[in-house]
Amino acid sequence: MKCRAIIGSLLMCLVVAAQPAGTRSDTSLPTRQLQVHDPTLIRAKDRYYLFCTGRGIRVFSSADLKTWRQEEPVFKTPPAWAVKAVPGYNGHTWAPDISFHNGRYYLYYSVSLFGKNRSCIGLLTNKTLGPQDPEFRWEDQGMVLRSVPGYDPWNAIDPNLIIDEKGLPWLSFGSFWNGIQILQLERSYKKPVEGTTPQTIASRVKTAGIPDAGGAIEAPFIFRKGAFYYLFASWDYCCKGWDSNYKVVTGRSRQIAGPYLDKEGHPMAQNGGSVFVRGDGREWMGIGHNAVFTDTDGTEYFVAHGYDGYDNGKPKLLIRKIRWDAAGWPCLDASSE
């Protein structure tokens, strides 16, 4: 889910303790019944771990991508710097992004309030994802980036880390305002490179001759395959149950910072975007805020939430295999539904 704001720097490497018993359920739920927002997926050894929006960042695990067990949230008490940076933030944390690099797991997350761009992106790291591992411990690396109302024309939420062909880290992010942004990070992954500023790679700002989209774009995810970087983003509105009209669009670029063009060659920075998936108005209403996950056997999965038309528009987990057409564009594999 979304919102906006940011931070001043404080408290580096604050240890976020594991949660007490009682927050975990031993009941396993099938994928279609799992209610989530903004899921991101990774595999660690023999289990899959799903991180999503919720109090303290919700976590689920699975052995087969079919049934899911709720784990303890990442933190019980929200980081003090985040509470100070975003007045009103109470630990309900949005849109995490998980990845593994240099022997550690990097978990970026959003701190904001709905409809505001006083937002920040934070970072937690861990050596392992197995709660029973003696080295399991989330360490808070503090604020990575912030947006300030009246100053920044973008919103510092919905982070996604991508490593370029040179091994350099970049962070894409953004929701509404001037759209999706990207900037280069230091090799520590903790801060933007000094002197850099975000640049827009996808937007729905009103343009002459194009109907006003209300700026409704968010949730970037960049996926590298072959010679291209593919940018996924969500258009229109989440979080409205039956009335949600979320959809995922995509474009691609040979350079990580763009320009990203859709199938017709329109720049995503100027309202371009080819629809990848949308609701059908019956089984699923809106579908959006996706991630792309590659399993150890090379299978690529689209991971998102959709609003279940058969269950009062509740947000549910969707996982579908991705295939590629002859022109090198991603498609959903209908056989995996």
Rank of each mutant, 00 (worst) to 15 (best):
I7S: 12
A17I: 09
W242F: 13
P192I: 03
L29P: 04
Q255G: 11
Q35N: 11
L185W: 00
V275R: 10
Y237R: 15
T299W: 06
D64T: 05
N126D: 07
F173N: 01
F176K: 05
M1A: 11
M12L: 13
G130P: 01
V59W: 00
H305V: 03
L261D: 06
G179P: 07
G54I: 00
E300M: 09
S147D: 03
K206Q: 12
P198A: 02
K66V: 12
P198Y: 01
W284T: 11
T296C: 08
D297P: 05
G306M: 05
I121D: 02
L11N: 12
S234L: 05
L29V: 15
K116S: 14
G241D: 10
G214R: 10
G8P: 04
Q199I: 15
S203C: 05
G209T: 06
F114G: 09
K66R: 13
P134V: 11
G130Y: 13
F176A: 04
I201Q: 03
H101Q: 15
A269T: 11
A18S: 14
A334T: 10
M285L: 13
A5N: 10
L113V: 10
W138T: 01
P211F: 13
G130R: 12
P315K: 06
A327E: 15
K321Y: 04
P211N: 12
C13H: 15
L50Q: 04
D236S: 13
I57V: 14
K2C: 10
S274M: 06
T197N: 10
L145P: 02
F136N: 09
S188W: 00
G130E: 15
K45Q: 15
H289V: 07
V86F: 04
N178D: 15
V111R: 06
F114C: 04
V36Y: 00
